[in-house]
Simulated scan of single mutants.
Amino acid sequence: MAAAGRDRVVHLLRQLQRAACQCPTHSHTYSQAPGLPASEKTTDYAFEMAVSNIRYGAGVTKEVGMDLQNMGAKNVCLMTDKNLSQLPPVEVVMNSLTKNGINFKVYDNVRVEPTDKSFVEAIEFAKRGAFDAYVAVGGGSTIDTCKAANLYASSPDGDFLDYVNDPIGKGKPVTVTLKPLIAVPTTAGTGSETTGVAIFDYEHLKVKTGIASRAIKPTLGIIDPLHTLHMPPRVVANSGFDVLCHALESYTALPYHMRSPCPSNPVNRPAYQGSNPISDVWAIQALQIVAKYLKRAVRNPDDLEARSNMHLASVFAGIGFGNAGVHLCHGMSYPISGLVKMYKAKDYNVDHSLVPHGLSVVLTSPAVFTFTAQMFPERHLETAKILGKSN
């Protein structure tokens, strides 16, 4: 029975692996190069790691103006959303830019859970501005929107669907040189400051899709835990659920040496390669932090220790899944969030229906891990123990 269950899980994970269109954010099949011949059957034997530069520290946001000055930036785009534009994180960034003589323009029309329309509006702003650097201040929605704006402003003659994943878009590899992008995350969940992925709702087809390329990773992630003190409790909880599932899914993903086909050239190796020894380290560390600090971070908005550690956990899990990928929880989260049209989550100051990403992900997690436990019971038992299961 155990062998049969394991075979079922392997079969499903392989099916997911081959279905690149189902989960552009985390699919193990993503590559920046054309597909390999179907006749190539051997599994891979190697993995590689890619991650943005990261700087961590309470108050470190004040250095962003110096970073841009060091880069020689003369005309900067500052992206955020309407709510955050009135809060201290954006004020700190603007003060730093002003103090260091950086000319900048603010785009504060980022949509929480962006769409193709909101992406295009940000792209048009970036094209008109002819910016030589970008700063994104906000959650994953803001950072992803800024990645897209940077990409398409650097490739002004292209069509919007050129870089969107196949089969929704053309899935072209990114060959243009992008401008520097500094990401200042204000939530502790997406890990977008570490990854080369930008996700949006494609409204015409009512699906969630994205752009995935190592080329669009932020140049630098500024991890300032002081910003997390402005997160309402439900935002902390849902962001924490995303961290939890990033870590659990990447740790229990199909191992890199079971992924097929083996690339004939390193450029064909996908960014999301399956669980591997390096991603495992980051995933386990993230889980240990979540187990210790998530409840505290939700219950007490002034608990800087808890919120600081959850900010780190988000980065750790982002590095893990950004190279290993995740699986069913995230794959099934897209129809959950995409099909709900009337729900407005508490503590989210938005004017449209919204199922927070972390909530849509965690809903299926009990059923998912009951199923996947048949493949790697020892890994599931290890993570359960970390999260507090005594036997």
Rank of each mutant, 00 (worst) to 15 (best):
R8N: 10
V10I: 15
H11R: 14
H11Q: 13
R14M: 05
Q15N: 06
Q15V: 11
Q15G: 04
Q17I: 00
R18F: 10
C21M: 11
Q22W: 12
T25F: 07
S27F: 02
H28Q: 15
Y30L: 06
P34D: 10
P34H: 10
G35R: 14
L36N: 03
P37D: 14
E40Y: 03
D44V: 11
Y45W: 03
A46F: 12
E48I: 00
V51E: 06
N53V: 01
G59H: 04
V60M: 04
T61L: 10
T61Y: 00
N75D: 08
V76Y: 05
T80E: 05
D81T: 07
D81R: 02
Q86L: 13
L87W: 00
P88N: 03
P89E: 06
V90W: 02
N95S: 13
F104T: 02
K105P: 00
N109K: 14
E121I: 01
I123Y: 06
A126Y: 06
A126R: 08
K127Q: 13
R128V: 03
A133E: 09
I143D: 01
A149E: 05
Y152K: 08
S155T: 12
D159Q: 14
F160S: 12
F160Y: 15
L161K: 09
Y163C: 08
N165S: 10
I168M: 10
P173E: 01
V176E: 09
K179E: 11
P180T: 07
L181S: 02
A183Y: 08
A183D: 07
V184I: 15
T186M: 09
S192D: 03
E193N: 07
T194R: 06
I199S: 05
E203S: 13
H204A: 15
K208Q: 08
A215S: 09
L220D: 10
L220E: 08
I223A: 03
D224S: 11
M231V: 06
M231C: 13
P233N: 07
P233G: 12
A237D: 01
V243R: 02
L244K: 08
C245F: 01
C245H: 00
A247D: 07
Y251E: 02
Y251M: 10
T252S: 15
P255V: 08
S260D: 12
P263G: 11
S264D: 08
P266G: 02
P270M: 11
A271Q: 14
N276W: 05
N276A: 13
D280Q: 05
W282Q: 12
W282Y: 15
A283G: 08
Q288P: 02
Q288K: 15
K292W: 01
Y293I: 00
R299S: 14
R299G: 15
D302Q: 14
D303N: 04
L312E: 06
A313T: 07
V315L: 12
G322D: 09
V326T: 15
L328K: 08
L328R: 05
C329L: 09
H330K: 09
L339Y: 12
Y343W: 13
K344L: 07
A345C: 07
K346C: 02
V350K: 03
P356A: 04
P356D: 03
H357E: 09
G358F: 09
L359I: 00
S360H: 03
V361D: 06
P366W: 06
T372A: 07
A373C: 11
Q374M: 13
R379K: 15
H380I: 14
L381A: 13
E382M: 15
E382R: 14
E382W: 10
A384R: 14
